[in-house]
Design a protein around this nucleic acid. Sequence first.
DNA 1: CCTTGACATAGTAATTATTACTAATTATTT
DNA 2: AAATAATTAGTAATAATTACTATGTCAAGG
Lengths: 211, 211
Amino acid sequence: MKFFRMTNQREVILEEIGRYKGHPTADLLYERIKKKLPHISLATVYRNLEILSEVGKIRKLEISGRQKRFDRELKEHNHIYCLQCHRIDNIHMVSEQMLASGSEKEIGYKISGCRIEFFGICPECQRKNKPQKQNESADSHVTCKLNTRQREVLAALESYTTPCTGKDIAAMTSLEAAQVSCQLASLKKKGLVASPARWKYKITKAGKDAL
Amino acid sequence: MKFFRMTNQREVILEEIGRYKGHPTADLLYERIKKKLPHISLATVYRNLEILSEVGKIRKLEISGRQKRFDRELKEHNHIYCLQCHRIDNIHMVSEQMLASGSEKEIGYKISGCRIEFFGICPECQRKNKPQKQNESADSHVTCKLNTRQREVLAALESYTTPCTGKDIAAMTSLEAAQVSCQLASLKKKGLVASPARWKYKITKAGKDAL
DNA sequence: CCTTGACATAGTAATTATTACTAATTATTT
DNA sequence: AAATAATTAGTAATAATTACTATGTCAAGG
Ligand SMILES: [Mn+2]
Ligand SMILES: [Mn+2]
Ligand SMILES: [Zn+2]
Ligand SMILES: [Zn+2]
C-alpha cells in the first residue's frame, strides 16, 4: 500500500479549507494558498485535494455540470445550490421531509427541484469483478461461442430499441454489409437474434445474455 | 420571443435519440447521426441537444463530474449509475423506499449510495431579481454607505470563519495593509466588523447584511 | 418575384477544468 | 551513505463544451 505523507503543502491546503466557510473550488483555494506558499503549483493543489478526499480528510463535492468543490464538513449532509449564481449551501434534512414541509423558509431558498442520483455497481460489473484467478480460461471459455464480428453485430443490435436492417448495422460498425448479413444468419441460427420482418433484425433475450 | 424551426438536422437528432435505448452522450449521437447526415457538425449536435432539451422534447442528464447525457424518456424518473463503468439506468422509485426495501434486486445494482441535490434560487438572487425599474437608484442607494475598498475588505472577511488580521485581508485582496487597517477602523465604527481580540477582526451580522 | 431579417448551419477556434508527464526534490528505509 | 519511495513545481496535454464567423435557408411583406 501507498504511504501517505502529511507534507507542508497538504497541511496548508487542509488549513485553508478549514478556514474557508462554504464550498470552495480548487482554483479559489489555489489563489489563497499561493499567498502562503508562493511556489505551490495548481497541479499540486488539485492532486492533493483529490488525495485528501480519498483519505477522508475532506469531502469532494461534484455538482452536476459544474466545477468540483470541496467541503471541510465531514458530517453527513446534503447540499442545495442556486440555479442562478451557483452558490452552494448545506442542507440538513432528508428529501421528502424537506420538500413537504415549509422548512424551505429556514434557508431562504425558493426550491424548484431536486436531483437524486443513486450509484453503485451494475450487474455487469459485479459479474466482471468476480473472476480474478481464471484470467485466460474465462476469456477462452466465454468467447468460444461468439467471435469478434458476431459480438460487434450483437452489441450494435443491443443498443437499438427498434428492429434494424443489416445496412444499419454495417453503418454502425466497422464491418461490411456482406459480413454483417453472414453473421446475422449465424446468430439467428443460434437464437441470439430474431427477424420480426424480412430484412429486419432484433436482439433476443438469449442474445443479450450472451453478450 | 424566438421562433423554433424544426429543421432536418433537428429531426434526425430527435429520431436518433428515440431509436437509441439508454442515455447517449452528445458525441455518441454525433457518430450515429453522421451516418445519415455526413455534413452535420458536432457543434450543431451540441447546440440542438441543448435547445431540444430547453423546449422539452428531450431531457438533459447531468451526472456529477461526467459528460452530459440525453434522455428521450420525458416521464419523471430518477437515475442510477455505475461507479465503475459509468453506465446509467432508469429507476422508478423514490429515495427512501428504494434504499429501505430490498428492491435493489430488481435492477441488480449493488447500491452504495445516493446523491441528493436540491436546486432553486438563493435568497440573495431572489433579492437581486426583484428590483428591475430602479437600476441606477438601487446602485447609488445601496453603495452609498460602502465604498469599493470597504466592500472588498468586508467580502474577504465574510468568507472566513475564524477572525483574521489586517495582513490576512491584505493578502487576499488587492489592497495594501495600510489601506486595509484604515478601512477596518471605519467599518468597525459603523458596526460592520468587530474586533474580538487586538489585531483580529471578524464580520458582524450587520456587516453581512450590508454586503 | 425580390428583398429583408430572423434563424440555423458547418467548420473552426477558443475556453475551461482537469489530468498527465517529467525532471528535480525530499523523506524514509536499509 | 545509498537505495527506494513519495512528492513536488512546472508544463504539456486532454476532454468536453462553447463561442465565433461566414454562409445558407426560409417565411413574410411590399
Ligand atoms: Mn457542505
Ligand atoms: Mn432515463
Ligand atoms: Zn458497471
Ligand atoms: Zn443565487
